[in-house]
Structures are given as C-alpha cells and as structure tokens.
Computed example of a mutant assay.
Amino acid sequence: MSKKLAYVAVLIGAILWGTTGTAQTFMPSTIAPLTIASTRLAVGGFTLLLALLLMKKISVRGWPWKLTIIAGLAMALFQFCFFSSVRLTGVAIGTVVAIGSAPIFSGILEWVLLKKKPTKNWMIATVLSIVGCILLFSDKEGMVVNPLGVVLSLGAGLMFAVYTLFNKKMLKQVDAVPAVAITFSISAAVLLPFLFTSSKEGILTVPGIVGTLYLGIAATSIAYIIFSFGLQRISSSSAVTLSLAEPLTAAVLSFFVVGERLAFVSWIGVALLLGGIVVLTFGGSKEEKEMEMKAEIGM
C-alpha cells in the first residue's frame, strides 16, 4: 500500500467512526451511552474473533500480548472517559477537548518515546484541524465547562493516542484483522460490567438491534481494520490527526441526514478541518518519504 493510499485508508476509517452519532439517533434514546459503547465493542470484537477462530485464521502462538493488552485497555478507557465526559460537560466540550487533544498527545508521545520530531506538515494540519474542530462546535447551545468532565475528555484524547501508538507497534508483528479482533475483545471484556449497570431499555427492539449491529460491524470492526491497514504505513501522529475527520463527518451528516442547523462559524470549522486533512494527505506523504530517504543516506 502506498503512502497516499494509507492516508486515504485512515481517512475512510475515521469517516466510518463519524457515522456513529447519526446511527445512534435512530436507536431508542433510553439506551445509555455506555451501554452502546460496550455493546458495539462486544459485537465488533467478539464476532470478528469468533469468525477468525472458526476459520482457523488466528494463532495466539508468539502473539505480542503486552502491546495488545495495553492497546485494548487504552481503547476501553477511551470509551469510558469519552462517554463519561460527555455526560458531565456536554457533547460539544467533551468532543472538542477529547478529539482535539488526541493529535497533540500523539505528537508528544512519538517525540518522547520514539524520538521522532513532528513534521512541518503535521503541525500545520493539526493546528488547522483543531481550530476547525473548535469552531465546528462553538455554536452549540447549553455548553457547560465541568472541570472533571474536561479532565476526562483529556484522558480520552490521551487514551486514543496511546491506543494508536501501541496498535502501530503491534501491527509490525501481526496482521490487522486478528489484531482488531483480539484488541477489541479485550476492550469489550473490560467494559462488560457496564452492561449490568447502565440502562439497556430498548436494546432488543428492531432499531436497537440494527443500530448495535451497524455500530459493532461497520463503525467498529470494519472501520478499525481499514484504519489499521493505513496505520501500518504512516506515523501514529498523522493517523490521529486524520481521525479529526470523525467530527467533520458527524457534523455534515447531522446537517444533511438529521436536519440539525450549522451556523456560519461551524461551516468555517468544516473548511479548516478539510484544509487540515488535505494538507496532511497530500503534503504529509511527500514529507515523510523525504525524511525516510534522508534517514537512509544518514543525513
């Protein structure tokens, strides 16, 4: 897979994640957010794992368990922190802080742990995308800045960055499909207790079942498999920045499908987000290639 196709793959994964909010609007509102989070991981992880086991397409011999467990726990904590922060401080603040802080945390982690300095294109794209994300949600009503909610949002951003970094390390040793299956099965097992403590009313209705299957299969299994295929070829910081296509997709779908209003400032945010994605997709691959060539000749 070429670098540009890798960027596109990560982008497609993020777009699929962005359909989550719209899909939830067609599900009964009585289903608690943490119930949705845990069931989507269970459907996405356990179903894929069972299918691979039945086809004998997975082997745990020599499996990088340390990396997988860290990635699985990070994803489970991301789900918990994000949905808890949204409950405390609202969708707008929770989303902006969590999704907007993830690229920053990812860049810092790569710099500290991998000694890999952020590229110029990454910094430009990240700034454009974060500002765009802030403007996208700045017009939302009823915004409440809850300190604990903001801390949990930052925790969610950090956990997504940790998941991406360790998932990339894992993908150097194993294939993407079994990696997603085992990682998300671990995440689902960690979040399983929430199925017994959160509201499940409406989960067994037709909209509840269809929505859960879509979220588990399309917005989780397929999305993260495609994301992982792309992640194998690009840096984790670039992948996390491209994941800002998620709120962009959610906003566009909310306007065209759900019928929500987007103010002029929100459309500016959309434009900046698109700008950041274009800069990273077309400029990032060229810049990373040049850096690789310099490293090979010892410059």
Rank of each mutant, 00 (worst) to 15 (best):
L148K: 15
K172M: 12
V91T: 15
T281D: 12
F227S: 08
I31M: 13
L128H: 05
Y163R: 15
T281L: 12
L158H: 05
T47Q: 00
G269W: 10
M55I: 09
L231N: 08
K3S: 13
S84G: 04
V10L: 14
V127I: 15
L53R: 13
Q173S: 10
S199R: 00
A176M: 05
S237Y: 00
A23N: 11
V190K: 08
V112T: 09
S228C: 09
W65E: 12
S153T: 03
L11M: 09
A32K: 01
M27H: 12
E260V: 00
I130F: 11
S29F: 06
K169D: 13
L158P: 05
I69P: 14
L11K: 03
E288P: 07
V257I: 15
L16H: 02
F137R: 10
V257F: 12
G275L: 08
T205L: 02
G100V: 03
Q173V: 12
S59F: 07
S238F: 05
P64R: 06
A189K: 01
T183N: 09
L231S: 06
G155V: 02
L41E: 04
I104P: 10
Q24I: 15
I277Q: 11
M170Y: 01
V127M: 04
G100H: 12
A9C: 06
L11N: 09
S2H: 10
F160C: 06
A189D: 03
R87H: 11
L88D: 03
V210N: 03
